[in-house]
């Protein structure tokens, strides 16, 4: 949905970069590339990801 917004970590004042992050839900864990602060690792998840693929994943795991 977003057209590549600029995202700045307010603590480190650095622009976020694509990096892997670890996720877990209902005893499963997975990795995915998301925007993170290159210094402190703060994660940003856009709504499109949350309501899209993440929602699908939640639905699938809840029925697994």
């Amino acid at each position: 949905m977003e057209e590549k917004p600029t995202l700045i970590c307010s603590r480190c004042q650095l622009e976020l970069e694509e990096a892997e992050a670890q996720f877990s839900y209902l005893n499963s864990s997975m990795r995915h590339k998301v925007k993170r602060c290159p210094s402190c690792g703060q994660v940003y998840l856009p709504e499109s990801l949350v309501t899209g693929r993440m929602r699908e994943l939640e639905d699938a795991l809840e029925e697994k």
């Binding site: 990096a19 992050a21 670890q22 996720f23 877990s24 839900y25 864990s29 993170r36 402190c40 690792g41 703060q42 994660v43 998840l45 709504e47 949350v50 309501t51 993440m54 929602r55 994943l57 939640e58």
Partner: peptide, 20 residues
């Protein structure tokens, strides 16, 4: 401006590249 929620947990966000 906006809110959204998810149930998947973001694990050990601060442990980043083994440095934090």
């Amino acid at each position: 401006i906006n809110i959204y929620t998810h149930r998947v947990k973001i694990e050990l966000e601060m442990v980043y590249n083994g440095r934090k």
